[in-house]
Design a protein around this nucleic acid. Structure first.
Lengths: 231, 231
DNA sequence: CGCTTCCTTGATTTATGTCAACGTGCGTGG
DNA sequence: CCACGCACGTTGACATAAATCAAGGAAGCG
């Protein structure tokens, strides 16, 4: 990485902030003024429908961005809320164009992150559009684990995720009752375990097999530049 | 628009090609070498699941891009196929970074297009995750109509879309039989009409109301630069 | 003419949603 | 300390949306 790239990167990371679980980082109707990167903690991006219930669009993990398009759109399309407490790097959206101008490599890295995000949405569509409840859950969990791994955690730490059955249900478009039944079934098959601290994958390969997870999309897909940097 | 911007834009549009309906523009496993913009015609982006059936991720209309991230990722995540015959502007992916370097405004326009695409995916997730079949269909049709309108068609032309019930089913994660029943119902309520040339919206406002379509996301959302140009 | 693709409809099965009840842990405030 | 509410997980009984199976019609096309 070039010397000046690092300088810019530092500048984007100069301000960090701690947020407690449940903080709203972005509101659906509001204008987006701030771009952030998650340094630690989990968040979720969701939309609220007419009748008041939530559809989680994507989970946001360390290394992911929030409000990357803020400079380009009038208003946010989604709410963003912290699931766990976490630390974020933040800077005003309007600094982004300068970053692009200053370093093509960093610009590419930002685009890469945006592209990643879009891929996650595609995966999500595949899940809720073409799978049954059990497969959806397995697929989601495997994807999240892969993402945690790519972000640089040790494999052992990547097995436990801070998400409740309720969140799973809201993400996968199933009722929380049904989500519970499916989770129990996965537990009985020793693929899964739930504890107070969240959900633990006991047999990732088994889950992959169950839902036909396509691993080829995960490994080595580009330039994990900021991702490794933010950790 | 600056003079040099126009020059770059011309260069990206210098080569165009006609494709018949059914052409495969991009293959799921393959490397993406070419970036394209749709000048006329409709296409679809889809993924194929283990058991062979398709999940349409997004429909692609005039003004939309194909393979915009080709320079950044090893392989495509989706297939792209023409629904109707159409004309595309195409150029090698590797020219994109130059474009970013040459004009910040054009770079922003490309990002805007990418961001749009991501929003469509969010909408799609909302549909299949949080709505029943009838609402999904209504919501999809209204969104497509809005997109056609934003792309610059005359309102009258935006009412008829070249998509079959089968495609609707594949996009919305429902069986084609059920899609048919729902469409018939919408027809009986005079919201819809199907003919040999596709599907015609008789009462867009009625459809909007039926599914609670959020219009605020559509109007005036940025810099439709290339969009107006490609038409 | 046979072939294919799409649309259409009825009968039946299945996955999932809804309603309801109960247990647990956890924080808060008395 | 207890009592209370609250969020979450759990399970059963029941209702329903949607899938599947099956059959047939209409239109395009070699």
């Amino acid at each position: 990485m070039q010397h000046e790239d690092i300088a810019i990167l530092e500048r984007l990371h100069r301000r960090t902030a701690e947020y407690p679980a449940g903080s709203i980082l972005q509101h659906e109707s509001g204008r987006v003024e701030t771009t952030r990167f998650i340094i630690s903690g989990w968040a979720m991006r969701y939309r609220t429908s007419r009748d008041g219930d939530r559809q989680i669009v994507n989970f946001l993990l360390p290394g992911d961005s929030i409000g990357l398009y803020g400079a380009l759109f009038d208003r946010s399309a989604c709410d963003v809320e912290m699931i766990t407490p976490g630390m974020l790097a933040e800077f005003p959206c309007h600094e982004l164009p300068d970053t692009f101008r200053a370093s093509a490599r960093l610009g590419a890295a930002l685009c890469w992150i945006a592209g990643q995000d879009e891929r996650f949405l595609e995966q999500q569509i595949l899940r809720i559009g073409a799978m049954n409840a059990i497969e959806r859950i397995a697929h989601l969990l495997v994807e999240l684990q892969q993402r945690v791994l790519v972000a640089g955690s040790r494999p052992a730490d990547a097995m436990t995720m801070p998400i409740s059955q309720k969140l799973i249900a809201q993400a996968l478009g199933i009722s929380h009752v049904h989500a519970n039944r499916c989770c129990r079934r996965l537990e009985r098959q020793d693929l899964l375990e739930t504890g107070a601290d969240g959900l633990t994958l006991l047999d990732p390969r088994g889950l992959e097999q169950l839902c036909g997870f396509d691993r080829s999309l995960c490994g080595a897909m580009g330039i994990p530049l900021l991702r490794s940097r933010t950790l």
